[in-house]
């Protein structure tokens, strides 16, 4: 299990990296943390002729807040995401997702932007990005553009990134005042990719003085492991918004999730299983996110 040879390019600066990508285009791959790419190369499932290592671009390892958005630089690892106090308070869904990503040793090396650019449909962060409709900052020698997460994922391991483009930053919206987040997933073993996963972010309207169920102001549901791309559960989201929480509402949202997905079977789970459990986990995650939001408010 030895990878093919390749030309190695250690980028000294971002411009350097972009220039190399521009030169080699389709023949080049970006080496970020390498935790997904290297095993694929070891199995010779991916054999890029050129590898552009962004490891030295250490100035891009910050998590910052600007204009109500939390910006995560391309060198931020999963471990840094998991440990960030800013993420814990401002993007609770990303914080909740982080411990589910692989194992500690993977999180120490793998990067947030790398995972989103790799676009594994069973991975957590692409679903988080979809759930929160993150902004993805994409650079090339041709300039910079911002792609909404809703438009970023095109198919299995394929994205809106052009061959010469690099995902340099992901921007998550900062949570509202009354918000809750929950990630539920079923995997075969601890740390495996999800068979089924649901990333839920709920925001609530300011509580009215009279008692009663809280009203959902904003809902994001990202599904993973359920198709070729991370899926935003659009119908379920719209069912939720403007309504007070209830078991019936969550059941309706779960039904909407199950109706709108077309999961694939594999050796680990059948399509029927995935559809059923998507509904179960949607209910559980909605209830968790609600409890969390209301307990904290």
């Amino acid at each position: 299990m030895k990878m093919r040879g390749f030309e190695y390019h250690r980028a000294a600066t971002l411009d350097d990296a972009l220039a190399t990508l521009s030169e080699f285009g389709d023949d080049a791959k970006v080496l970020a943390g390498g935790q997904s790419l290297v095993p694929m190369m070891a199995m010779r499932l991916s054999s890029p002729a050129h590898l552009v290592d962004t490891g030295k671009l250490t100035t891009h390892d910050t998590i910052t807040e600007t204009d109500g958005m939390i910006a995560i630089g391309m060198r931020v690892t999963h471990a840094a995401l998991e440990q960030s106090a800013l993420i814990a308070t401002a993007v609770p869904l990303a914080h909740a997702a982080a411990p589910h990503i692989g194992h500690r040793a993977i999180r120490n090396r793998g990067t947030v932007c790398g995972s989103i650019a790799h676009a594994d449909p069973a991975a957590e962060l692409p679903a988080v990005a979809v759930s929160l409709n993150a902004q993805l900052v994409v650079r090339s020698t041709r300039g910079e553009r911002i792609v909404n997460a809703a438009d970023f994922f095109h198919g299995y391991l394929t994205t809106a990134l052009e061959p010469d483009e690099l995902l340099t930053e992901v921007r998550f919206p900062k949570r509202g005042a009354i918000a809750g987040a929950s990630v539920h997933e079923v995997s075969r073993r601890n740390g495996d990719f999800a068979l089924v996963g649901v990333a839920v972010h709920l925001e609530f309207a300011k509580p009215s003085t009279k008692k009663g169920a809280a009203v959902i102001a904003n809902a994001g549901i990202g599904l993973f492991g359920l198709g070729g791309i991370p899926i935003a559960a659009v119908e379920a989201q719209s069912l939720l918004v403007g309504n007070p929480t209830s078991d019936d509402l969550f059941a309706a949202a779960a039904d909407a999730v199950m109706r709108n997905i077309d999961p694939m079977p594999d050796n680990h789970a059948t399509a029927q299983y995935r559809r059923h459990v998507a509904g179960v986990l949607t209910r559980r995650a909605l209830a968790d996110a609600t409890n969390q939001a209301l307990a904290a408010s």
């Binding site: 075969r188 050796n267 680990h268 059948t270 029927q272 299983y273």
Partner: peptide, 20 residues
């Protein structure tokens, strides 16, 4: 008895023709 099989046995989900 992976999770799919448990739910099939329990009648919670329909049995899929196994892919393999």
């Amino acid at each position: 008895l992976p999770p799919s099989k448990i739910l099939e046995l329990a009648g919670v989900i329909q049995t899929a023709r196994s892919t393999a």
